[in-house]
Design a binder for these strands. Sequence first.
DNA 1: AGAATTCCTAGGTACTTACTCGGGATTGAT
DNA 2: ATCAATCCCGAGTAAGTACCTAGGAATTCT
Lengths: 149, 149
Amino acid sequence: MRISTRGEYGVRAMLDLALHHGQGPISLKTIAERQDISEHYLEQLIASLRKAGLVTSVRGAQGGYLLAKEPSEIRIGDIIRTLEGPIAPMECVEEDHDSCVKVERCATRVLWQKLQASMEKVLDNTTLACLCEETLRLKAKDDSFMYHI
Amino acid sequence: MRISTRGEYGVRAMLDLALHHGQGPISLKTIAERQDISEHYLEQLIASLRKAGLVTSVRGAQGGYLLAKEPSEIRIGDIIRTLEGPIAPMECVEEDHDSCVKVERCATRVLWQKLQASMEKVLDNTTLACLCEETLRLKAKDDSFMYHI
DNA sequence: AGAATTCCTAGGTACTTACTCGGGATTGAT
DNA sequence: ATCAATCCCGAGTAAGTACCTAGGAATTCT
């Protein structure tokens, strides 16, 4: 019932890009260092994100990666689906899967569908812009805490 | 992002017991055949459910398993937590886990907490009794469909 | 030209999952 | 008392997945 490191690292990398949106291309190395992720592993993940049209790349010196859209237009669900596959707690609730034979099983299927819907609601209603705001909020709290010492 | 077969089979087996609640102990073999699950594998799962106090066993000939409580008192969340561990999409939102160092990461943590809450809400608001009702509803539909032919 | 960087392919290790196997302990029916 | 059904327990295994590594070709800035 866990999101794997693919999803975790992917979201963190995308948030990193979002927080530096408008500052030109960010190199893989920079993201990997800031986020403490293996550079080569991150390369594989970001390749998937590029193919999915969520980031664009600039090759050559001073190159790097950029968000392909505004942070407010990239949903966390898009990132997770790209890196982890369909958001489905059970095979039988994935798209174009034949319904099962046994009626009893389909009662559980209704449950898995509800679970799926609730997960998609959270992940598709949160965008990178939301996480940027949240980050600023947390930073502000952090700073005020430091002044108290 | 999938529930494994442990959770899937466990819920199916428990629903099977719930649908035959009050009919005396049901043998492992019967459940395994009805639910099309490997008997030895199911044995392991049901052993965990027994230790968690969700089922009781009756040994010897004509023995088998019984729900330890009423179907309305067994939440799907209890079954999943027993067989799959804590319902947490990310390690950092499990109980008694130290918060992470980086502020940026904690912005994503807020997201994972929301996701976790939405999942627990669905799984803890559904009981075996709910699934029994759903099964009867589906059976009724199925029968009326057959009469139409 | 040369340095920085993305891009691409291939492979390897350690862990997890989904089982299987073998045998022992307990108990009800006869 | 015996037998057969059934629960109970521990170990083993094959396939898949997650994560990481290595190396080199292509591209672009300076």
